[in-house]
Design a binder for these strands. Structure first.
Lengths: 203, 203
DNA sequence: GTCTATATCATGATAGAC
DNA sequence: GTCTATCATGATATAGAC
């Protein structure tokens, strides 16, 4: 925080360009131009393109994982937690629509080793306590017994997929920009209903 | 089909490299090397990198959309159709695990115009008849009334997300390669159960 | 700290021998 | 049709003036 304003500008510009075009498609020249500074100055602040990228990636990765952890660890009943997860996570994605595709693409590009170098520093999601909660609720007859890993991945997938795969979904559903925004609006309730239904007890 | 064997080799090599690294990350040198030919020969067959890419993209795009259309249009009851969709689509993805992320990334990189130039030639999925089928089944009391667009996107998302977002899911669930393969194995039944549950009538 | 000018290198693409 | 050699460009990165 409270960094040098030039550095701040560079960070912001770099984030925009890296998220739009990925590491391979990004150009140092374009980053400097958008930051309104000279190309040489970039290298004064961040020795190399790789260094600049890692800074952006690190922040982006933590944002995403951090938000998810935060939502998973809230102290509330499981059904309410699911609804809140969907609402807050979709809020987050609407603010950062390019984030998940960026992370995924770069994590795929770099090797397993690169990922490890980050996940080492980072608290991995607290699946265990979520599992306890789900199992207890199932035992108490409040919800159907389900596999917590798949439940979590399903929740994430349903929220994030329309952002990651936007152009593909547009083709499949034959929707222009405006129609797609409309689709996303309705999606919030659809996903919540879908997830709740998946926990409904068989009668 | 039955092309020149050199051209065939180039296509295969180019497909592998483009799918792994994307257009921006792919190198003509690497493509020629993997094809076992000279770099100059690439340009003899495919004038430019763009031309070669478009050829690969076109085939890949058609494969994906074609498979989906085929599965959507099968003539069977809706519940059976959903199960078959999941099974056959997951089969397809296991054979082409890099395909969806490649398509999504490149469709995002190129503009809307580029996409249109393809979707013009292509039959877009037959959502309408699927909607009829779902609505009729709902009216007959066989399934819950649901929005067919969201149902379709949910089905696709649940299948495809673990392939698109593999490294991210690995971090979230803290799974190495082998554990991840195990996770994918169990997923097939999980997704089918999940989708069927979403169509269950309220009692 | 910021800029200009330049070095260095890799890439896509071409020309031409065989 | 296939290769070698080379071009032209554009990228990252550095050196040095201010």
């Amino acid at each position: 925080m409270k960094e040098n304003p030039t550095e701040e500008k560079i960070i912001q510009s770099a984030e925009e360009i890296f998220l739009e075009k990925g590491f391979d498609g990004a150009r140092m020249r374009e980053i400097s131009e958008r930051a309104g500074i000279n190309k040489g100055l970039l290298h004064y602040y961040f020795k190399t393109k790789d260094k600049l990228f890692e800074r952006i990636f690190y922040v982006a990765f933590n944002q995403m994982i951090g938000r998810m952890n935060q939502l998973i660890e809230q102290d509330m009943p499981i059904q309410e937690k699911l609804s809140t997860f969907v609402d807050r996570y979709l809020d987050f994605l609407e603010k950062h629509p390019l984030l998940p595709r960026f992370l995924i693409h770069e994590m795929t590009r770099k090797g397993q080793d690169f990922i490890k170098s980050f996940t080492g520093h980072i608290r991995t999601p607290a699946i265990e306590s979520l599992k306890l909660q789900v199992d207890e609720a199932a035992a108490a007859g409040q919800i159907k017994a389900v596999d917590v890993e798949h439940l979590l991945i399903n929740s994430i997938a349903l929220c994030v997929f329309p952002f990651i795969a936007k152009p593909m979904v547009q083709v499949i559903l034959n929707k222009n920009e405006q129609a797609y925004r409309q689709f996303l609006k309705g999606r919030r309730e659809q996903v919540k209903a879908f997830l709740h239904q998946s926990l409904r007890i068989e009668s």
